[in-house]
Every structure is written in structure tokens, then in C-alpha cells.
């Protein structure tokens, strides 16, 4: 297995794995698998379950940002039977931070739109770590509109720290393009399925995130602002309070499904997606196919109506006479 980046809290897991590997190597010469090996494998599973079952919000963020975490390109490889990439926004350029193209998933032909962070340093620089410019959002909506024309369902894989904050991005209308996408996606008469596969960074994520179904991987996060940014603004100590901010923002899959923002949480294999791309992809594929089947029977008009109502119902507030609200609360 290739060497993978170890997160600080994963150390006991890797230590135990090393011990187990030693033991297994020794026991190969003897016959069968020793009780000791079996015991240790069980212990390892329990340890992974325990550590990954009790991650803090900040630890979850580090898993979501893990350099070996599967990206859109991995899912194209592992989930899709075919991928025909379509480049460019026909106005300015081809933003490499967002990948778009036709894909086949099971029996479905879809339009796949996904952030791609890149794996090598060179690729990451090209793709700006998945931080798209206005042309990326323009490319995304253009391909989605093309798909809607032929009622090809759309799948959006979200994985970005945020839309790119730069001079060129502002000059070319970052806010304008994200806003356009929000409006246009709400009107597309074809099924839209969104999944946050890693980082769901604010407007940059939402810019391809208006769907009929929204799911997220177990250790992905989705937030209005990065914990670092929130720490700087509200705690005024740079990123000193990022752990507290991560906790306060309620950005994990658990919280988001309780808040009714995500419809389903896609389980990750024991020890996180970065430990096993293949089974992560299998879980994701199953979820995507379920959604595509569910949505297949709805007319374009119904989809748009239901999508509107889905987002329309998001938000928590109170109304009525304050005295009545108090009375109801105590009743």
C-alpha cells in the first residue's frame, strides 16, 4: 500500500497496524492465522470504530481535507463507465477547478460536474486546489443547461475550500456568476443530485449545490464559512479558535442531516474514505443510483416545483405575537 498521510489522531491506528503487519509476517511461516493475529485485527477494527466514531468537528475537517481523500477524478474512475469531458465556458476560458462532462453511471447517462482539487503539486496549482473562478461557474451552468435540454440528469460533486478569492475573480464577477448559478439551477427541468464529497466551502460549494437531492459523505463538511475565517472574524484571533469555530458552525454530516439540509449521509469505510477509495465509491454509486431512480418519474415541472419548495422550507425563525410564542413554548 502506498504511504498515506497520517492525521495526528490516527497515530494509534497506524501503530497498531504496523504491529499487526509484523505479527502476520511472522505467523506466515507457521500454520494458519494465530489467535493473537485474530485478536489484534479485532482490536484494530474496534480502535478505528472508536476513533472515527468520536471525531471532533475540527478532526472531521482534517479528514475532509486529507490529501489522499478520493476526488472527483477518482469517482469518475470508480463510479462511471464512461466519461466524456467537456471543457470551457465559451466566454473566457477553461477553469480547471471544475470538471464537467457526460458520464455513464449504471444504466444512466448523466452530466457530471465536480470540483477537482488535484493530486500532485503541479495539478493542484493548475486547479487552484478546487477553488473556481467565475469562468468555472459559467462553464458548470452552461453544461448543466445543455443537459437539461435533453433531460439528462445532473450529478454535482462538491469539494472546494471556497470560490477563489482573487483580483481576477472579482474583476470577472465572482459574485455575479455564483448568483446566476443559484438562480439558473433552481429552474433546470432535469433531476439534479448533489453530493459533498470533501469540503463544502460556502458560496463556492453552493454554486453547484442547488439540487433535488443533497447528500454528503460521512466525514465531509459543509459550511457557510471556513472555521479559520470564522475564528478570525468572531474570535478575532486569526485561526486560533478554529476548533471552537468548527464546533459552533455545526458543519458535520451529523448536524447537517439533523438540520434537514442533507437528505442522506453516505457512509465511509472504517477509518475514512482515504483508506479505501473503492468501497467509498461503491457506497456513493449506490446512493446516486437510488436518487436517479427516485427522480426519474418526476416531470421537469414537478422537479422545479419540488426543488423550490425544498429550499423554500430552509430556515429557522419565529413569528406571531411574542407573548403567544412564549405561551406556546411553555405549553
Amino acid at each position: 500500500m502506498e504511504k498515506i498521510f497520517q492525521l495526528p489522531f490516527e497515530k494509534p491506528i497506524y501503530d497498531l497496524e504496523a504491529q499487526l503487519a509484523d505479527l502476520e509476517a511472522k505467523s506466515v511461516s507457521q500454520f494458519g492465522v494465530s489467535d493473537e493475529v485474530r485478536r489484534m485485527r479485532r482490536e484494530l477494527d474496534n480502535m478505528k470504530r472508536k476513533i472515527y466514531g468520536n471525531l471532533t468537528a475540527w478532526q472531521t475537517i482534517t479528514v475532509a481535507r486529507h490529501p489522499n481523500r478520493p476526488q472527483t477524478s477518482d469517482y469518475i474512475e470508480l463510479v462511471c463507465d464512461e466519461f466524456v469531458e467537456l471543457h470551457g465556458d465559451k466566454a473566457f476560458g477553461d477553469d480547471r477547478a471544475i470538471v464537467t462532462g457526460f458520464a455513464k453511471i449504471g444504466d444512466y447517462k448523466v452530466m457530471l460536474v465536480g470540483h477537482q482539487k488535484g493530486k500532485t503539486l503541479k495539478e493542484r496549482n493548475e486547479r487552484l486546489f478546487g477553488c473556481a473562478h467565475p469562468e468555472g461557474y459559467r462553464k458548470a451552468i452552461a453544461k448543466m443547461q445543455l443537459a437539461a435540454k435533453y433531460r439528462v440528469p445532473i450529478i454535482c460533486l462538491i469539494d472546494t475550500p471556497g470560490a477563489y478569492p482573487g483580483i481576477g475573480a472579482e474583476e470577472r464577477g465572482q459574485s455575479q456568476m455564483i448568483a446566476n448559478n443559484l438562480l439558473e439551477m433552481s429552474l433546470l427541468e432535469t433531476p439534479i443530485v448533489c453530493c459533498v464529497i470533501g469540503e463544502g466551502g460556502s458560496g463556492g460549494a453552493l454554486g453547484i449545490g442547488v439540487g433535488d437531492r443533497i447528500c454528503m459523505l460521512q466525514f465531509a463538511y459543509y459550511s457557510v464559512i471556513s472555521p479559520e475565517g470564522c475564528s478570525g472574524i468572531l474570535w478575532k484571533d486569526g485561526d486560533g479558535s478554529k476548533e471552537k469555530a468548527a464546533e459552533a458552525l455545526k458543519l458535520t454530516s451529523n448536524h447537517l442531516s439533523r438540520l434537514g439540509i442533507v437528505d442522506n449521509v453516505v457512509e465511509e469505510p472504517l477509518g475514512g474514505a482515504h483508506r479505501d477509495h473503492r468501497s467509498t465509491a461503491a457506497n456513493l454509486k449506490a446512493q446516486l443510483l437510488r436518487y436517479l431512480r427516485e427522480l426519474a418519474s418526476q416531470s421537469g415541472e414537478q422537479l422545479v416545483q419540488n426543488r423550490y419548495e425544498k429550499f423554500r422550507s430552509m430556515g429557522v425563525f419565529e413569528e406571531g405575537d411574542p407573548a403567544d410564542v412564549l405561551a406556546n413554548a411553555s405549553a
Binding site: L183, S186, Y222, S223, L251, L259
Partner: peptide, 16 residues
């Protein structure tokens, strides 16, 4: 920020 993801979703809701 203090309403977290719910605030983010307002962007989609109003745009729709």
C-alpha cells in the same frame, strides 16, 4: 455566520 449552513441556504432560496 451564527446561523451556519441555514444562512448559506438562504442564498439559494432567495435566488430561486
Amino acid at each position: 455566520m451564527q446561523e451556519g449552513i441555514l444562512s448559506l441556504m438562504q442564498m439559494a432560496k432567495v435566488s430561486a
